[in-house]
């Protein structure tokens, strides 16, 4: 017989290293023609940080994505941005890039303020036009850059960001381990075959608070990939070690989810703005998989009344526990 069940799980995840300094830095150069180069030490490992950081630079500089060239993760050229880990790069490198862009932009803003005879605070840069707020006055970015160059002014910026944390007390754990946290809720629907112990995850509904989705499609991609990874962790993936020796050293015996194993994934992006984040963004890389095994485990209980206490969930263990429950 096949029995369905639904389970729910929450998670929280501190963005950045725990109670330790973990700065990132970046350089931005606004070029003569209004395009820009961003230098960041941040390593894109496929999750999309190059794109996110270019978006942040483009937004801050009021130019288009195509106008931004980004060079990342080359120690001969790019400044240190720390590790691509701890779901930290959007939040920390994102801030660094934004501050670098802001510093480069400051040069043209000051120059525009001088040319338009207004306060620099009144100047905004958008669509390559510097406008004095509340007036009709404006100057194109190109003209302003040209003026800057005539005076020998380059438009360069450096930015760095180190999240505000307090180290944990060694006895009580008291402290401020992270400057901000990501939050999420996932709901799993599963079907358990009571004769074979087979578990099929039918659907996952995943709501993630990311502060602000810099790139919604990328956030969905992180959630979908994270759920898949969490599903494998919960049901099939196990490195078997006997006396220190790994027994399954290939992808035929270590089973990660295939396209046939991944259920329908419904991603819901929740934006509870993070005031210290770049455009109020936090992080999502790791949060994506954290609640998945727990949600599936709770759904299994809902389906067959057996509590999951070990990962991965083995069919034979589940069957045995179901039988034991029936007998008692």
């Amino acid at each position: 017989m096949k029995k369905k069940g639904v389970g729910i799980a929450n998670m929280w995840y501190g963005i950045g290293n725990t109670g330790l300094p973990n700065p990132a830095s970046a350089y931005v150069e606004l070029l003569d023609d209004g395009t820009a180069i961003v230098l960041t030490g941040c390593a894109d490992i496929g999750q999309g940080s190059d794109t996110i950081l270019a978006q942040i630079a483009a937004e801050e500089l009021g130019i288009d994505m195509d106008d931004v060239a980004l060079i990342s993760a080359d120690t001969g050229v790019t400044p240190d941005a720390g590790k691509t880990s701890a779901s930290r790069q959007t939040y920390i490198s994102g801030n660094a890039v934004r501050f670098a862009a802001r510093e480069a932009k400051g040069v043209v803003i000051d120059e525009a303020a001088r040319l338009l005879s207004v306060d620099p605070e009144k100047i905004t840069l958008r669509n390559k036009i510097l406008t004095a707020e509340g007036t009709e006055k404006s100057i194109s970015l190109l003209d302003c850059l040209n003026e800057c160059r005539k005076q020998g002014k380059l438009t360069l910026g450096h930015g760095s960001f180190n999240p505000e944390v307090i180290a944990l007390n060694s006895e009580t754990g008291e402290g401020k381990p992270y400057a901000c946290y990501g939050f999420a809720t996932q709901v799993a629907e599963v079907e358990v075959d009571t004769e074979t112990g087979d578990i099929t995850v039918l659907r996952m509904v995943c709501a993630h608070d990311v502060g602000k989705a810099v790139n919604p499609s990328n956030v969905e991609g992180q959630i979908e990939g994270g759920v898949s990874n969490g599903l494998g962790y919960c049901l099939t993936e196990e490195i078997v070690v006997e006396n220190g020796v790994i027994k399954n050293t290939d992808l035929a015996t270590y089973l990660i989810p295939t396209s046939l194993d991944v259920p329908e994934i419904e991603s819901i992006i929740v934006e509870d703005p993070e005031m210290t984040g770049p455009f109020m963004a936090k992080g999502v890389g790791e949060p994506a998989l954290i609640p998945t095994p727990a949600a599936i485990a709770n759904a299994i209980y809902d389906a067959v009344g057996v509590r999951v206490t070990e990962l991965p969930v083995k069919k034979e263990t589940l069957l045995f526990k179901m039988l034991k429950k029936e007998v008692s």
Partner: peptide, 16 residues
Amino acid sequence: KRAISGNLCRCTGYTK
């Protein structure tokens, strides 16, 4: 899904 079931992807969860 059947046609790509022999191609493992670790990043995307195949959805997109």
